[in-house]
């Protein structure tokens, strides 16, 4: 296990391993993400990229290795972990908006309950965020009344409301109809331009080309390549990556 010097890394994974029974889903993962960096994780399904993403805020536990956020090791379950999670925004494939709360309440729940903001301030901040992602009009509605693309943008606003240091996106557009993918990607590109640190698991190569600083290619639980998007897409080094990219291009 190699522990790299990672003083300037906002998110750092060192020697991370995880098994599901016999299956070795994460194999000795080392990954450092600097502040303001946008890292896109791609790879075939079952390569462990979602698990990697979820491990960073400990929705998945790991067997060995160290994950730190802003220099702090991920705590075990408990209050400390909850505090750290508040600093890590997460956007899920299936949106996961709170079904019994309005759009506005979805965004204000965290700020009010975790950050102890008063309701008026939380409402004001939430409205600004909802406007920013283009769903301000939907504030009083229930999640089920919104389209998938709108729901996902609300989910991004909900994560941003906690003023996170880093945002994790776990296949944010995979559950969306094709015509709604762009409205979500646009918000994400915007966010990247504003300097948000982002780790994005996605199949959207267009987003990787447009917004990523680095592309991490995973296969069979390992990081196979870690390169700038230009390099990766034009000149992949490994056969796995070449194979993966050729399959994408033929469709």
């Amino acid at each position: 296990m190699t522990i790299q010097a990672s003083s300037d890394a906002l998110v750092s994974l060192n020697g991370v391993n995880k098994h599901y029974g016999q299956l070795h889903v994460l194999k000795d993962i080392n990954l450092q993400v600097k502040k303001g960096e946008v890292v896109v994780v791609i790879g075939p399904s079952g390569s462990g990229k979602s698990t990697l993403c979820r491990a960073i805020n400990r929705l998945e536990t790991i067997d060995t290795g160290v994950i730190s956020i802003d220099g702090r090791k991920l705590p075990e379950e408990g209050k400390e972990l909850a505090t750290l999670r508040a600093d890590v925004g997460m956007v899920f494939q299936s949106f996961n908006l709170f079904a019994h709360k309005t759009i506005l309440e979805n965004v204000t729940l965290g700020p009010i309950k975790v950050k102890k903001l008063d309701k008026a301030t939380a409402d004001k901040d939430a409205m600004a965020l909802l406007e920013r992602v283009g769903v301000g009009q939907q504030a009083p509605k229930m999640p089920a009344q919104l389209s998938g693309g709108q729901q996902q943008r609300v989910a991004i606003a909900r994560a941003l409301a906690m003023k996170p240091k880093v945002m994790l996106f776990d296949e944010p557009t995979s559950a969306l109809d094709p015509e709604m993918i762009n409205e979500v990607l646009d918000v994400m590109v915007q966010l990247a331009r504003e300097g948000m640190t982002m780790i994005v698991v996605t199949h959207e190569m267009g987003f990787a080309r447009k917004a990523a600083d680095r592309v991490v290619f995973m296969a069979d639980g390992q990081i196979v390549e870690d390169a700038k998007p230009e390099e990766f897409f034009t000149n992949p080094q490994s056969n796995r990556a070449k194979d993966f990219l050729s399959k994408l291009l033929t469709h």
Binding site: L59, K79, A82, R85, M90, S94, N96, G110, R158, A161
Partner: peptide, 17 residues
């Protein structure tokens, strides 16, 4: 759905909340 609890944990809510 389990995603509801995951989303709640992800915004920093502790187990009880």
């Amino acid at each position: 759905p389990v995603g509801q609890a995951e989303a709640a944990r992800a915004i920093g809510l502790p187990f009880t909340q």
